[in-house]
């Protein structure tokens, strides 16, 4: 069975890109969210196998969302999506239990590598 993914990013364009990469490679995107709050809600409803989570977002940022998600399910697998220069944030995310991170601009194989390794 294909793995269920929740894609979180405030830019619709980015979500579409990630979605395309994932669906073309046998993942099922079960939900999308544009900010941290939506992400946490969507996580509760869809119960995905893995989440791709953008760091900088309005309402609730990726780090906060990660903490909330980890509270809901300590084993939740979350891949952080960051831009260059967000080193400190990425470090914090790892401390909070993120499984991996990818740096924008995305390369399809990097995203897939991260997902495969985290799920494998």
């Amino acid at each position: 069975m294909s793995k269920k993914v929740l894609v979180v990013d405030d830019a619709a364009f980015m979500r579409m890109m990630v979605k395309d990469i994932l669906t073309n490679n046998g993942y099922e995107v079960v939900g999308e969210a544009a900010n941290g709050k939506e992400a946490v809600e969507s996580f509760k409803q869809t119960n995905p196998d893995i989440v791709t989570l953008d760091i900088t977002m309005p309402e609730m940022d990726g780090i906060e969302a990660l903490k909330e998600i980890k509270k809901l399910n300590g084993d939740a697998k979350v891949i952080m999506c960051s831009a260059m220069g967000q080193q400190a944030m990425v470090m914090e995310a790892i401390k909070e239990g993120a499984s991996d991170f990818v740096v924008k601009p995305f390369q399809a194989d990097r995203v897939l590598e991260a997902l495969n390794k985290a799920l494998g």
Binding site: M91, I94, D100
Partner: peptide, 15 residues
């Protein structure tokens, strides 16, 4: 060598 935030990567390994 393609890794962009290698400190975070290394930190992950260490953790």
């Amino acid at each position: 060598s393609s890794c962009l935030i290698k400190s975070a990567r290394a930190y992950m390994i260490i953790k």
